[in-house]
Each structure stands twice: as structure tokens, then as C-alpha cells.
Simulated assay, not measured.
Amino acid sequence: MRIFRILNNNAIVVIDGPREKIVLGKGIAFQKKNNDIVPKHKIEKVFVLHEQSSEKFQQLLKTLPEAHIELAEQIISYAEGHLEAPLNDHIHIALTDHLSFALERIEQGFSIQNKLTNEIKFLYKKEFEVGLWAKKEIKRKLQVDIPLDEVAHIALHVHTAKMDSPSMNESLQTATILRDFVEQVQQVAGLTIEETSINYQRLITHLRFALNRIQKGNEIEPIDEEMLALIQKKYEKAYLYSSEVIKHLNQEYELNFPPAEVAYIALHIQRLIRSES
């Protein structure tokens, strides 16, 4: 295997059969030139991207700081080990580009904001752990302290790179719906929901599974009529609050929560009401 193109000190392009491949390894191109034999003991990663993606990644490797590229690759390697699953090759572009831009903004004094940090932290716990690991590594290697909002951005990139995971837009929409749901419950019911409380976690978990059922077209088991009547009578306020919140979600996001969900969510709201009394 010979070097076809040197991208930076740690990245080269080789021709293997009919395909170009990108080869990464610390110092793999040090004191090398095109057509030199690739030092096999320095190869850490070899992958093939689609033509347009390959060109984009090669541009990133040539233009971004090598320290940023190296950190992104270490985060990806750690994520695959921590999640015990391979990630889509496109993350080498998406995360590297995002991370470098974020680090530049932080170093220039700009703030990083993410309104969905709490939802991402709850929805994608293991991915958020990857982001926390990245936070420590970035601090250790670059002396840059990224905020938790950036940790959440990294977690979302990792999540959407998992095989068969929803797209970035779908993952963001789920987190947005959950955030809107919590805000609506607080506004309609006049509650303050502690995001570390068990009741918050139960509420979010229930809605997450309900959304998943709706998105997949799975029907929820109908609620017993006697049980429904009991909830409507005993927890009248909670049921009214739930009805209003579900109506908002159905209209705002073109969802179709079944009537039974109003009752189930009313039970969660009742727990929240009880915890504040």
C-alpha cells in the first residue's frame, strides 16, 4: 500500500483497488512523500466514504487544526467502545467539523448554547457520558473547558451516528417535543418540575415511549372505561391539564395521541401536583 496523497501529518489517501481510502494514524505521513510505502504499524483507521463525503473530509483534514482532528477521532473511538457499537463513517466529517468550529468559538469568547441539553442528557444517557469524557479530554489536552451545552451537542452527533438511529433532525424533533411538553405542563398546571426528580423522569420516559409508538404506527392498548371514568372524576384537574397539553402537541407537531394517552399522562401530572402539595 502506497501513499497517494498526504492530507496532514496524521492522514493520507491511498489507492486500494478501484477505491480511494483514507488512512489515519499518528505521524503516519511524517517525513513521507507521495508514492512512499505506508508504514503499517502506524495505521490506526482505514475507511471509505462516498465520493462527495470523501472530498469534504479530505478538505477538513487539510484545513482544520490537527489537534482538533485528533480529538474528534479519539472521541469517535471512545464512543464506539463505550457504546459497544460501530458508528456511521459520516461522523468523521460531522463531528470533526462541528467540534473544531465549537472550539474556535469558545476560544474567541463566544458562548455555546443548547436549549435541549436536559432532554438530550435524559434521552441519550450513554452518548452524554461520551460527551462528558470528551469534555475531560479537551480540558486535559487543549486547556479548553467546554460547557455542558456543548457536551449535549457531541452526544447528539454520537447518537445519530449509531447504525439504524434516527437522523439528526428526527432526534432534535423528539427532544424539542419533550421540552415543549414539559413547558406546557408547567404552564397549564402552574407547576415547577424539577428535572432531577423521579416524577420528571417518569413523565419524560412515558412520553418518549408514546412518541415512539405513534411514529411507528403502533396502537396503544385502550384504557378500561371504568378506569377512564375514575381518572376523570378523581383527578379532574390533572385530566383537564393533560387534555390541554395533548391538544397542543397534536396541533403543533401534527401528532395523533389517542384518548387513552390523555388519561395516562393525567396520572403523571397528578403525581406532580401531589409532590408540590
Rank of each mutant, 00 (worst) to 15 (best):
K216S: 13
H50S: 12
F57S: 02
D180R: 05
I273Q: 05
K56D: 00
K139E: 15
Q113W: 02
V185T: 07
D97Q: 08
Y253P: 04
F209K: 14
G25N: 11
F122Y: 14
R213A: 03
F122C: 09
L95F: 05
R105C: 00
P259D: 05
E254I: 06
I22R: 01
V46Q: 04
E104L: 11
H82R: 06
E195R: 15
A161T: 04
E195A: 09
K233W: 00
N8W: 03
I269Y: 02
A152S: 06
P65D: 11
T196Q: 12
A29V: 07
A67T: 09
Q74N: 14
T63E: 11
Q143N: 13
L132F: 12
N218R: 15
E84L: 08
I273S: 02
E254H: 11
P39A: 08
V262Y: 02
I214F: 05
V46W: 00
H50V: 12
G190N: 03
A134C: 10
K42L: 15
I12S: 00
N88K: 12
V158Y: 10
T176S: 14
K233M: 07
S54N: 05
K21V: 14
L87C: 07
M227T: 15
T174D: 06
H157K: 15
Y200W: 04
R5E: 14
A79G: 05
W133H: 06
Q113M: 08
I177Q: 01
I273E: 09
S165G: 00
T63F: 07
N218C: 03
L255A: 02
H50F: 14
H92Y: 14
A229D: 03
K237E: 02
L116A: 07
L207E: 09
Y200I: 09
L60E: 04
E51K: 09
A102M: 13
A85E: 15
E73M: 10
R2Q: 10
A161N: 03
P222H: 00
E236A: 15
G25F: 06
I138E: 01
K233V: 00
Y235N: 08
H90R: 13
I214W: 00
L64C: 02
E219A: 12
Q59V: 10
Q74T: 11
S171L: 04
F101E: 09
F30W: 12
A263Y: 07
H41N: 13
Y253V: 01
F128V: 01
I112R: 03
R274Q: 10
